[in-house]
C-alpha cells in the first residue's frame, strides 16, 4: 500500500513536502496508526503523536485523505490509495504530523470547562436523576482530539475569536448538567458575534467526530437557551 506523508522539519526543511512510503504487507484489520509505527521503524525521523491505540486518549488526530480522523481508529481497508496523511488543518505545524494545539486548548479553557456549584458541599454526592444524567451522554465523552474544530471552516477563519465546535460542545456539557449553577454567567460569556454565532451549521464536526458526538446540536441548544434568556 502506498502512503504520501506530509514532512516538515523546521530545522532542516525550507518548506514542507510529501514523502512516499510503500508498505508491501498490510494486515486485514490494520489501522493507520499501525502503518505509521511500521513506517517509523524504517524512517525514524517521522514524528507523530499517538498513545492509547483505542480512541480514548485523543492524541493521534491527523488529516487522512482529506479529513480529520484518529489514526488508531481509521482502517486501511477503508482508504483509497495513495493514502495521503497530513497534519490536521488550521493549526500551526510544529513538525511533520505534529501540530501546535495551544490555540485549540485556549478556546477550551475559555468556556470555563468545569463544574461550578456554589452550595456548601454536601456530605454525600449531589443527587442527579437518571434522566438528568442522560442529558450528559453525547457530551462528556469528548476526548479533545480536535478532529471537529480542525475541520470547521469557521474555526479556520477565526481560530482566536470563534470558540469552535469542541469548546462549544463542552460549554453545553456544563450548561446541561443539573448540578451546575453558572448558567447565566456561562451564557453571558458566549455573547458577541464571534464566540458562538460563527457556527454556520456546516456540520463537518458531526461528520468527523470519532466518538460520534454532535457539536452542531449542542451549539443549537446553546443558541436556544440564549434566545430564551433574551426574552
Amino acid at each position: 500500500m502506498r502512503f504520501r506523508i506530509y514532512r516538515y522539519n523546521p530545522e532542516t526543511d525550507r518548506e514542507p513536502y510529501m514523502q512516499e512510503y510503500d508498505l508491501p504487507e498490510i494486515g486485514a484489520d490494520m489501522v493507520v496508526r499501525e502503518a505509521l509505527i511500521i513506517i517509523k521503524g524504517v524512517d525514524e525521523t517521522l514524528s507523530f503523536r499517538h498513545s492509547c491505540g483505542e480512541g480514548v486518549c485523543g492524541s493521534d488526530a491527523m488529516n487522512i485523505n482529506g479529513r480529520s480522523a484518529l489514526a488508531c481508529l481509521t482502517k486501511l481497508a477503508d482508504l483509497a490509495e495513495p493514502v495521503e496523511i497530513r497534519p490536521v488543518a488550521g493549526l500551526p505545524v510544529i513538525r511533520d504530523l505534529v501540530v501546535d494545539m495551544t490555540g485549540f486548548y485556549r478556546q477550551y479553557r475559555a468556556v470555563k470547562p468545569y463544574l461550578i456549584n456554589r452550595d456548601p458541599e454536601p456530605e454525600i454526592e449531589h443527587l442527579q436523576s437518571i434522566e438528568d444524567r442522560e442529558k450528559l451522554d453525547g457530551l462528556y465523552e469528548c476526548i479533545m482530539c480536535g478532529c471537529c474544530s480542525t475541520m470547521c471552516p469557521s474555526f479556520w477563519w477565526n481560530p482566536d475569536k470563534y470558540l469552535g465546535p469542541q469548546a462549544l460542545l463542552q460549554a453545553w456539557r456544563f450548561l446541561a448538567d443539573s448540578r451546575d449553577q453558572a448558567t447565566d454567567e456561562r451564557l453571558d460569556d458566549l455573547e458577541g458575534p464571534y464566540k458562538l454565532y460563527r457556527c454556520h451549521t456546516i456540520m463537518n464536526c458531526v461528520e468527523v467526530c470519532p466518538k460520534g458526538l454532535n457539536p452542531t446540536k449542542a451549539i443549537g441548544h446553546i443558541k436556544q437557551l440564549m434566545l430564551k434568556k433574551a426574552i
Binding site: 468545569y114 454526592e125 437518571i130 444524567r133 462528556y140
Partner: peptide
C-alpha cells in the same frame, strides 16, 4: 474521596434514587 470526585463534576451513572 469518591464524593469529592462527584463534587468535582465526574458524571457518574445514577441509580433510581439519583445516587452514584
Amino acid at each position: 474521596i469518591v464524593y469529592e470526585l462527584e463534587h468535582f463534576g465526574v458524571p457518574f451513572s445514577r441509580t433510581e434514587k439519583g445516587k452514584i
